[in-house]
Amino acid sequence: MTQLATLPGVRAERDQTAVATPVRRRRRLGPGKPIRFGAAIGPVLLLGVWSIGSATGWLDPRVLSAPWTVVTTTGDLIADGRLQSNLLTSAQRAFVGLGLGIALGTVLALLSGLSRFGEAVLDGPIQIKRAIPSLALLPLLILWLGIGESMKITTITLGVFVPIYIHTHNGLRTIDSRYVELAETVGLSRWEFIRRVVLPGALPGFLLGLRFAVTGAWLALVVVEQINSTSGIGYMMELARTYGQTDIIIVGLVLYGVLGLLFDGAVRLIQRKALSWRRTLAD
C-alpha cells in the first residue's frame, strides 16, 4: 500500500527528468541498427578510387583499364554475342556442378547422420577427402576423364559436396536430444520424425554449407575454365591474356564477381526465408 501511495510522486519526478534528458533507447551490445544499402558502400568507394586513378593517369591502362573502357568493351562483347555465350556456358557448368554437389552432399549427410553404420562407412573417407583440396585432384581427374565437360563438372561437384556434407552432418548431429525425446512421447513415426524434427533442425547447417558450397563452386569453375577450355568466361579471359587485353580480363573478373554475389545473395535470401523463426544478433 505504501508503495502505491508514493507512486504518483515517483512518476512526476520521472516526467521531469524525462524532459531534461530524453531517454535514448538503443541496443547496447548488438552491432546497432542496419545501415541502409550498407553493403554497397565499400564497393562504391572502390569504384571511385579506380575511376580517379584512371582519369588522372595514375593507373596505366596496360596494367588496369579504366572503368569506362571496361564498360564499352562489355558493350562490344555483348554486341557480337561472345559475352552471352561464354556466360551461359559458365553458368551452366556452375549450376550443374552445384546441383550435383548439393544432392550428393545432402544424401551422404543424411545417410551418415541418421545411421551409425552409414557414419562408420562414409564419414572417414569424406573427412580424408576434405583434407585434400579439390583442385589437387585435378591431375588425376584429367587423366581419368580427359579435359572435357565431365572433368569440369566433376571438379566443381567435388568442391561443392564437402561443405554441404560437413555442415549438414554437423546440423543433424547437434539436434537437441530433448526434441528426440519429445518425438518419442508424441509417438512420431520415423518418417515424421525426419520431416518434422531432423530436416528442419539440420536446415541452418545445410544453408551455412550452401554458402561455402557456392564459393567452392566458383573457385573450381575459374580454375577448370582456364585449363584447355574453348568456351566460358575463363576461356575468354585466357584468350584476352594472350593478346594483352586487360579490359576483357576485367570484364571477366567483374562477371565472376557479379555472378558470385548473385549466388550468395540468393542463398542469403533463402536463408532469411527458411529461418524466419530464428532471431539472431544480426537482425
Binding site: 530433448r178 518425438a183 512421447t185 508424441v186 509417438g187 512420431l188 524434427v197 529461418l275 523463426w277
Partner: peptide, 24 residues
Amino acid sequence: NVSVVFQDSRLLPWARVLDNVALG
C-alpha cells in the same frame, strides 16, 4: 495414451504454434 509435459515447454522452434500443438 500417455502425454508428457516437461519443465521446458519443448516446442519445436521451427514450427508455428499450431503445428507444435498438432505435432504427429
